[in-house]
């Protein structure tokens, strides 16, 4: 399998604060890769850099063979993104927002595709409601739909489950697992460790911008260790260091 995401010595600093510090990792095609880390560990910054939203201050990263610094727009054309905060424009309805995304991404048959998502994520009754009037959970459903509506080969999703109820979490986890079974790739940032252990094939742990560990989840299972324990011991050790 070839890497769809190849990060080499990547750094990103905001003034005096280093959010991502010399990180190197690869993600293979067809993986459901979990980027784990405590709050402020650099996960969101990492996704922003990998999708060409912001520029790295050091190192390099290639996504689907494209240089994120020089070809950020092309990266965003080809991938799906769920940003950290659900933020569809306030004065469009849910349906209009998906039509807007479809127009920007030049998706054919956007109406039918939108209907599929209203049914899958169970928010058909909200399709004509303004985004500003939607609940957080419904806005998250909308952002989830916009990220996958063009069926990208790679999706970079930041905390996609955080506002969902258990039933919807189950639907979404099922969708993600099925998605990677089709050979597509998911780069998932989360701090819900149980979810990561359940659905991810490999993972990386970030702490204060530094990469502490990367590898397959199966390796932990073979050692009889669970991901939450492993994560906590590693982060606590780093914290006290």
């Amino acid at each position: 399998m070839s890497p769809v995401l190849d990060v080499t010595d990547l750094s990103k600093a905001y003034g005096d604060v280093t959010a991502v510090d010399h990180v190197s990792l690869t993600v293979d095609e067809g993986a459901l890769f979990g980027l784990l880390g405590p709050n402020g560990s650099g996960k969101t910054t990492m996704i922003k850099v990998l999708t060409g939203q912001i520029r790295p201050t050091g190192g390099s990263a290639r996504v689907l063979g494209l240089d994120v610094e020089r070809e950020g727009l092309k990266v965003r054309e080809r991938v799906g993104i769920i940003p950290e905060q659900e933020s569809p424009p306030s004065f469009l309805t849910a349906l209009e927002y998906l039509e807007f995304v479809g127009s920007v991404r030049k998706i054919q048959g956007i109406g039918e595709k939108a209907e599929y998502w209203f049914d899958l994520l169970e928010f058909r009754d909200k399709k004509h409601v303004l985004c500003k009037d939607l609940s957080r959970g419904t806005r998250q459903k909308l952002m989830f739909a916009q990220a996958f509506i063009h069926e990208p080969v790679l999706a970079l999703i930041d905390e996609p489950l955080i506002n969902f109820d258990p039933v919807m979490q189950d639907v979404v986890k099922g969708y993600l697992s099925e998605y990677v079974r089709k050979g597509k790739t998911i780069f998932l940032s989360t701090h819900i460790l149980e979810v990561a252990e359940e659905i991810c094939s490999s993972f990386a742990i970030l702490h204060s911008g530094k990469l502490l560990h990367t590898g397959p989840v199966a390796d932990l299972t073979a050692r009889g260790t669970h991901l939450p324990e492993f994560f906590l011991s590693l982060v606590r050790k780093e914290h006290h260091a």
């Binding site: 999708t51 727009l73 940003p83 424009p89 004065f91 995304v101 990220a147």
Partner: peptide, 14 residues
């Protein structure tokens, strides 16, 4: 002023 770039960050819009 009624929207910021954050609304477009997940789309291929420069």
């Amino acid at each position: 002023e009624f929207d910021n770039f954050g609304h477009y960050s997940c789309l291929p819009v420069a």
